[in-house]
Structures are given as structure tokens and as C-alpha cells.
């Protein structure tokens, strides 16, 4: 068993939530929300905060049994496969068109396999690797500041509710992983406060991170041009002319791969750890099998069509597991206690 400090807990959550998603979600989100995207994201941010507050309030009542834990394990496996297939596809398009895809996947998944056969402390401290990369990413992003067109914040049309709902739905991509709060909260040291200011700080960091990326993409690209751009942040950096490196997008892509690989490791940790807790299974055979499945599935799904299908489906599944299932589990726990 392990314990987490407050910082470790929130850093774990931040990497899980940002990981693979942050370079790609903006295109579909902005296309659906039009110029209203920034307003919708402020609303989505408020919902995220409410969800965190509710999770904090009811986390002690969240006691998933074996069946629910099984479901979550399956869900996280799906999430990991979707992330890996997207990473695989993106890498094959941007940097490694000739490298066999299973080699790329085996490399990333291999790191996860190694990390997940070590002590939990190794993995818990892994997100620290990302900390120095975040300011580098932000500095890169701010290089495009002179090219931003502020009039693209308007016109706002909040009367049409369908695009607003669609935008709100697609903004859920940034919420993926929030349910891990419920699973890991119990490991935070008792003497460390989570509710109140710490949650607010986490929420602010999460919001500022995603909101900045939304604003930059919205102000940088004309909306009519976004439908051609699958990874807007990468494209934005590709447009930058700098003297110290030929292709800024490549530099950023490597940062993103490290970020994503750590996210995959953390998800796999959750899968393995939940299995250990609920099924008392500590064998390495499951860990190896899990990683083999990840390699095979992510290679199979790494085509344009399949990646798109998985990306579309994942938000529906996420809503079930981050809202619906927690509500049911918490309500059932209350009923049992009565």
C-alpha cells in the first residue's frame, strides 16, 4: 500500500486529465461551438469545479465492489487503448511514417510495463518529470501571440442552444480521468487538507491550462480553416519561425509523447492497482498480458477511420464512468448504510 501527499495526488490527476487530450480536442470543440467556444469552456470549467467539489464531499461513500471495479478496469483499458492508438496514428503521420507501428507502440508500452512492475512510489513520482516541460510548452505557445486575432472571440450567439450543448459535450474530453479522484482520494495522507483552497488551486490550474489552449487556437486559426486541422497546437507551432530550431512542432511533439507516455503509465497503474485491491491479484502475468493487449489493439486501431470512431465514442463512455456510475455507487452505498 502507498500514501500520497496532496501535491502528488493533484499532479497525478493533472497528468491523467491533460495527457494525450490537450493537443487535439480544440478543433472539434471550437468547430461545434463556433466563436462561443471560450464562453462554453468557462461554463464547462465551472461544471468541472462542481464535480470536483462533489467528489470531495462524497468520496468516502464511493466504495466500488468487485463488479464496478471490473467495469472501471475495462473502461481504463479502453481509454488507454484509445490514447495509444491516437499517439500511434499521430506519430506515424508526423514523425515516423516508415517505422513499423508496433515498434513505436512497443517502445511506449514497454516503458509502462517496466514502470508498472516496480514499486508504486516509482510511478507516483513519475508526473514530476512533466513539470519542467509545462513552462517550455507555454513559452512555445506564447510565441504565436503577435499573430492572434482578438476579433475571433466574437460574434457570440448564445441563443442557439444546440451548438452550445454540442460544445459542452465535446468539452468533456478535458474531463476524462476525473473519476480517478474518487479512487485515489483515500490514499492522501490524513493530515493533508484537500477540500477548500487546494481543490480550488487545482481547478484553476486545470482551467487555465485548457482555457489558454482553447483561446490560442480560437484566435490563431479562422474557424472555417479549423476543420482541416486535426492537431491545432502542433500546427500552430509549425507556423512559427524561430532561429534556434528548424521545427518547433517537432520539439513540442516529443514533449507531448513523454507527457502521453506518462499518462498511459498512470492509467495502467490504476488498472493494475485496482485489480490488486479488489481481486488480490499480484501476478505479473496479468501485467504482461495487459501490455500485450495494449500493443496489439493500439496498432490495430491506428488508422484515420478507427481513431475517429474511438475518439467519438470515448466521450460517451467517459460520461457514464465519471458521472453516472459514481452517482449510482454513492447512492447505493447510502442505501446500504441506511
Amino acid at each position: 500500500m502507498f500514501t500520497l501527499s496532496r501535491v502528488q495526488f493533484f499532479l497525478f490527476l493533472f497528468i491523467i486529465q491533460t495527457g494525450t487530450v490537450f493537443i487535439s480536442f480544440q478543433s472539434r470543440f471550437i468547430m461545434a461551438s463556433d466563436h462561443n467556444a471560450w464562453v462554453i469552456f468557462i461554463f464547462a470549467g465551472s461544471l468541472h469545479y462542481v464535480q470536483l467539489l462533489l467528489f470531495e464531499k462524497f468520496h468516502k461513500r464511493f466504495n466500488p465492489g468487485k463488479a464496478v471495479s471490473h467495469l472501471y478496469i475495462a473502461y481504463w483499458i479502453i481509454i488507454t487503448i484509445s490514447f495509444l492508438s491516437y499517439i500511434n496514428y499521430t506519430l506515424s503521420v508526423w514523425i515516423f511514417p516508415h517505422t513499423p507501428q508496433f515498434i513505436t507502440m512497443a517502445t511506449i508500452v514497454g516503458v509502462s510495463l517496466y514502470a508498472n512492475t516496480r514499486r508504486p512510489e516509482t510511478i507516483i513520482n513519475l508526473p514530476i518529470v512533466i513539470i519542467p516541460l509545462i513552462p517550455i510548452f507555454i513559452v512555445f505557445l506564447f510565441m504565436s501571440l503577435p499573430d492572434l486575432v482578438w476579433t475571433r472571440l466574437f460574434p457570440l450567439d448564445v441563443m442557439e442552444y444546440k451548438p452550445l450543448l454540442k460544445g459542452l459535450f465535446l468539452s468533456q474530453a478535458t474531463f476524462i480521468g476525473i473519476e480517478i479522484f474518487l479512487f485515489l482520494r483515500q490514499y492522501v495522507k490524513d493530515d493533508e487538507q484537500v477540500k477548500g483552497k487546494p481543490i480550488f488551486i487545482y481547478q484553476s490550474i486545470w482551467f487555465l491550462f485548457f482555457f489558454t489552449t482553447v483561446i490560442f487556437v480560437l484566435l490563431y486559426f479562422p474557424i472555417s480553416g479549423l476543420k482541416f486541422v486535426t492537431e491545432p497546437l502542433l500546427q500552430l507551432l509549425k507556423y512559427q519561425k524561430v532561429t534556434f530550431v528548424e521545427r518547433l512542432d517537432m520539439f513540442f511533439l516529443y514533449i507531448w509523447v513523454i507527457w502521453s507516455a506518462i499518462t498511459v503509465i498512470l492509467y495502467n497503474f490504476m488498472i493494475i492497482h485496482t485489480r490488486k485491491i479488489h481481486f488480490k491479484n499480484t501476478s505479473n502475468r496479468f501485467i504482461i498480458l495487459l501490455h500485450l493487449i495494449l500493443v496489439v489493439a493500439s496498432v490495430y486501431l491506428a488508422t484515420k477511420d478507427r481513431v475517429e470512431i474511438v475518439r467519438r465514442a470515448i466521450i460517451y463512455i467517459h460520461i457514464v464512468f465519471s458521472i453516472l456510475v459514481p452517482i449510482i455507487v454513492i447512492l447505493m452505498d447510502r442505501r446500504e448504510k441506511k
Partner: peptide, 12 residues
């Protein structure tokens, strides 16, 4: 095996 994986970039 690990060293072989590190040769990943060679294809490109």
C-alpha cells in the same frame, strides 16, 4: 530487445 526498440527511429 530494449536496444532493438531504441533503433525505432532508424526506419525514418
Amino acid at each position: 530487445i530494449i536496444m532493438m526498440l531504441l533503433l525505432g527511429g532508424c526506419w525514418d
